[in-house]
Design a protein around this nucleic acid. Structure first.
Lengths: 199, 199
DNA sequence: GTCTATATGCGGATAGAC
DNA sequence: GTCTATCCGCATATAGAC
């Protein structure tokens, strides 16, 4: 109400991150200039520095926010007790989450090398935390003789890589619905880890 | 013999591509300058333009040469008649080939978006050709009831994504030998596509 | 909170000497 | 075949007006 004309701080911040994410996903961090981001938002380049101290921090904030979203979203899922069911839940969650944020996912994988050393460590730790969630399922299932995995670490990496692959080719409105893709991938994951029973 | 002092054309060309690949893999195409590439080779920036008309063409040549290597190497493999054995052959070939050229593989995936439209089409076509090699194996095996895959296209993408994932974590001299990794991944691939018999 | 103007440096690419 | 010198534009980031 008492807001001054031309004052938009509450919406400009998010819009900058949105624009930055979109442009960086398409062209890459190094190839996108602060001027381009500003133009996409509809402000001048100098105005961006009211919201971020520098370009590097902007990138870091994008990746950090994404990882927080990911960890919180998975954390908020109601987990099934059965490790086989929980693995299905993870597979479907991962595919759906990735598909809903293609730009953030793509950027998170592509721009890691453009983080400076300290920022990199932070993001890597969060990624590791997420991978550990999957590995914990595999370990529990293997201990209960419900999975047959010679190496849970490798199986973790294999499953995540396979699921991530969906984003490289899936497009809404194509040949297959996302639900069908989830089902087919879950079936491949299930067999890859030698899951017994359930589903 | 009759070569002039300071004339190194036969070795400078390859050295430029080598240096460019190394730097681009580490920092990204947009982040690497022609001056940096020149410094890595030990020449001045202007000299690079004797070997490439511009930076874009240099990137394209790197990716194209890599794809040619890939297609030729797979083409040169003695193929087994049994689709199950041929799938194992493909999986092991893919892991080994990728591991022997981490920079080229990484760059080929990361820098696609930095190719201009025409160059992109060329590389995409070559990539498609390679993927079709895998799909052909899956189709043949599915027809012979040796695989159980509801969708050969998805299975192709899933297998390639899974195998590509090895490069994100495998390091020579680590916990596992490459041969052991190949064996474990082949086992996961085999089960993911529901392969009967053999191994 | 945003703009305009600007400092300062690096980018790709080319010209011409050796 | 390579080097030095250079054109010219765009980059990040900041200062100060409104």
């Amino acid at each position: 109400m008492a807001r001054k004309t031309g004052s938009h701080s509450e919406i400009t911040g998010p819009r900058i991150r949105e624009a930055a994410l979109k442009l960086i996903a398409r062209h890459g961090y190094a190839a996108v200039s602060m001027r381009q981001i500003a133009a996409e938002v509809g402000v001048q380049a100098g105005a961006l520095y009211l919201y971020t101290p520098d370009k590097q921090t902007l990138l870091f904030d994008l990746l950090k926010q994404h990882m927080e979203d990911l960890l919180e979203s998975w954390g908020a899922e109601e987990k099934d007790k059965d490790p086989v069911k929980r693995l299905e839940q993870f597979a479907r969650f991962h595919i759906r989450f990735n598909q809903a944020r293609v730009d953030a996912i793509f950027t998170s994988y592509m721009e890691l090398r453009n983080l400076d050393a300290e920022n990199f460590k932070v993001i890597e730790k969060m990624r590791k935390t997420y991978e550990d969630e999957l590995e914990a399922i595999l370990i529990e299932g293997a201990d209960a003789k419900k999975f047959s995995v010679p190496d849970t670490k490798l199986a973790t990496m294999a499953v995540i890589a396979m699921l991530n692959g969906v984003n490289t080719w899936f497009r809404e409105g194509g040949r297959l619905s996302l639900d069908r893709v989830e089902r087919i991938y879950w079936n491949m994951v299930r067999r890859a880890v030698g899951a017994k029973g359930a589903t």
